[in-house]
Simulated assay, not measured.
Amino acid sequence: VGMGDSCAPSNNLPYGTAMEANLIQQLTLRGWAVVVTDYEGLGTPGVHTYTVGPSAGRAVLDAARAATRLPEAGLSADTPVGIMGYSQGGQAGSWAAELQGSYAPELKVKGTATGGVPADLLKVADFNNGSYGAGLVFMAAAGQDAAFPELR
């Protein structure tokens, strides 16, 4: 929903203003534990690395790791993990699935469901160029620049 820290899930979820709050509530009512990450630079120090898949994927896996290690969550290292997301979350979830075997092999990932995945960023940029989604192109450029300053 944006690149500023005020857009971070940790800033919106406590107030019920996150778009995903209803879905999260449905999952918790089923007894599922849910963890949501802010991603690198979103609600955390630095510039948000928007559209940088490996960064987002690692953030998802780190969040799952943290949840399984938090005693108050009542989870364990053997807890089955499911990953889901849409749009930016879909990209993050897809990258998490790709990286899990090498980055977080201890997690018991049982499945991944992602949608609206911006897989081909050049096609996404072309589609949004000159339209109401043009701001996404600038957000992606800022995110890539934050992750890869050597490309300036």
Rank of each mutant, 00 (worst) to 15 (best):
Y15V: 00
M19S: 12
I83V: 15
T28S: 12
V109Q: 12
P45R: 07
A119D: 06
G116C: 07
L29A: 14
F138E: 14
G57L: 03
A18C: 05
S55E: 10
G135W: 09
G115V: 00
L23W: 05
P118T: 05
V35L: 04
V47N: 11
G46D: 13
A73G: 02
V117F: 07
Y15D: 09
M139N: 11
L13Q: 07
A63T: 06
A104I: 03
R69C: 05
E106W: 06
A73S: 14
V52F: 09
Q100K: 12
E150H: 03
N128R: 01
I24F: 04
E72C: 00
D78W: 02
S6G: 07
A21H: 04
A96R: 05
G4Y: 08
V36T: 14
A77S: 14
N22D: 12
T37H: 11
M3S: 12
R30C: 10
P54H: 05
T44A: 15
S76D: 12
F127H: 08
E106G: 02
I83E: 03
K110Y: 02
H48P: 11
A77I: 01
A97L: 10
G115S: 14
D38C: 07
S10F: 09
L122V: 12
S87P: 04
Y39M: 01
L107A: 09
L42H: 06
W95T: 00
K123W: 02
G85M: 09
S55V: 01
A33C: 11
V60H: 09
E98I: 02
G57Y: 06
V34P: 05
A63P: 03
G74D: 03
N12L: 15
P9W: 11
E150L: 01
T28G: 08
V35D: 05
E40F: 06
A113I: 10
P105E: 11
A66L: 14
A73Q: 12
Q25K: 15
P54N: 09
S87T: 02
P80N: 03
L121Y: 08
V124F: 13
R30I: 00
L75F: 10
H48E: 11
Q88E: 15
A33R: 13
V109I: 15
G16T: 11
Y39W: 13
G116R: 03
G4A: 15
D62G: 03
Q144S: 13
K108Q: 15
G53C: 04
K108Y: 01
K108I: 01
V1A: 11
P149Q: 10
Q100T: 10
D5S: 15
S76R: 09
K108M: 03
N22K: 12
T79W: 08
Q91V: 00
M84Q: 08
A92K: 10
G143A: 07
D78I: 00
N128D: 12
A134V: 04
L122A: 15
A64T: 03
A140I: 01
M3I: 10
S87V: 00
V34A: 05
V36M: 08
V137M: 04
G89C: 02
Q88L: 14
L23N: 13
A146Q: 03
L136N: 11
L136R: 01
L99K: 07
G90H: 07
D78L: 04
L75E: 09
A146K: 07
V52N: 12
D78T: 14
K108V: 13
S87Q: 01
D126G: 09
G89T: 02
L136D: 02
E40P: 00
A73V: 02
L136S: 06
S102H: 05
N128M: 10
